[in-house]
Design a binder for these strands. Structure first.
Length: 267
DNA sequence: AGCCAGGACAAGT
DNA sequence: ACTTGTCATGGC
């Protein structure tokens, strides 16, 4: 039993899309070009998964700090086992481009369909996420046929850019990405937003759920709702919400955001 | 029928 | 630098 860790809470938290509860407390997830089968509460020994689920980080101190905020105290008690995953960079870019103006069940459906159509077969009806080289060669119509709508162009353009910048050839694309952002004198968010189809919200999600920039603070409709109803900030005042997070949640803004996101959707 | 969903873009002030 | 209309799709 790992402390401060619940597979179920992570799977239902909207930060991953390729994990499913296939039967009570049994989960199947696709990542790292493999199919993983895990049970809630079981010990995690696989080195990749230990890193992926951020199990080397002690969340108890972070939670204690955030619990000083009464709203977060309630939220954390609803999802005490939530953690910030470290997902593959390209998968996260693709996933969160798809996520825009969309809902979680349909996001998952679209990711499954693009994987089945263009990803490598793994086993037993499970397919890997398609690599950027495959997607860069597609026509917009190919993805329109799969019902991606206006996101089709964003996916293909971002795949091309990902390749042009050479991330597909990197053993550690995240490290190069972070270095490139710094070399261009840009924040991670700013650099991510140079990709077509990546705006402020999606950039913050990629920074948080892949690059592990835990001060990132993605503001979607749910976070707007929570910041409005529970913190009294004007519903569309994104700037005020960013400032509130920066001043109050500080370097743990992303983690706070994830507790709040889970909490407001759970109600 | 209209609104909502882990929004972004382009054109217009 | 901020506001507005538009963009596909499907569930409710």
């Amino acid at each position: 039993m790992i402390k401060d860790f619940s597979l179920k809470e992570i799977v239902y938290s909207g930060e991953v899309f390729r994990w499913n509860e296939v039967s009570e407390n049994n989960f199947i997830g696709i990542c790292n070009h493999k199919v993983y089968r895990l049970r809630e509460g079981e010990d995690i020994v696989d080195p990749f998964l230990i890193s992926y689920f951020d199990l080397d980080t002690d969340y108890s101190k972070i939670k204690d700090e955030l619990k000083k905020d009464p709203v977060l105290n309630k939220a954390i008690n609803v999802c005490p086992g939530l953690r910030i995953v470290k997902q593959d960079l390209w998968e996260t870019i693709l996933s969160f481009i798809i996520s825009q103006n969309n809902n979680i069940p349909r996001i998952k459906k679209l990711i499954e369909s693009i994987s089945k159509e263009y990803g490598e077969f793994l086993e037993d009806g499970y397919y890997d996420i398609p690599d950027p080289n495959t997607l860069a060669k597609l026509d917009v119509k190919d993805l329109m046929d799969l019902k991606f709508g206006y996101r089709a162009e964003y996916i293909i353009e971002s795949a091309k850019r990902y390749i042009e910048l050479g991330y597909d050839k990197e053993i550690d694309p995240k490290l190069k990405f972070i270095n490139d952002a710094r070399d261009n004198n840009m924040t991670l968010i700013e650099y991510l937003m140079t990709f077509k189809g990546i705006g402020p919200k999606v950039a913050n999600c990629i920074a948080l759920f892949s690059l592990h920039d835990i001060k990132a603070f993605p503001i979607d409709t749910w976070v707007k709702k929570v910041m409005n109803t529970l913190y009294g900030i004007e519903i569309n005042d994104v700037k005020a919400m960013e400032n509130y997070a920066k001043n109050n949640f500080k370097e743990y803004s992303g983690i706070a955001q994830q507790y709040l996101f889970y909490y407001i959707r759970d109600k």
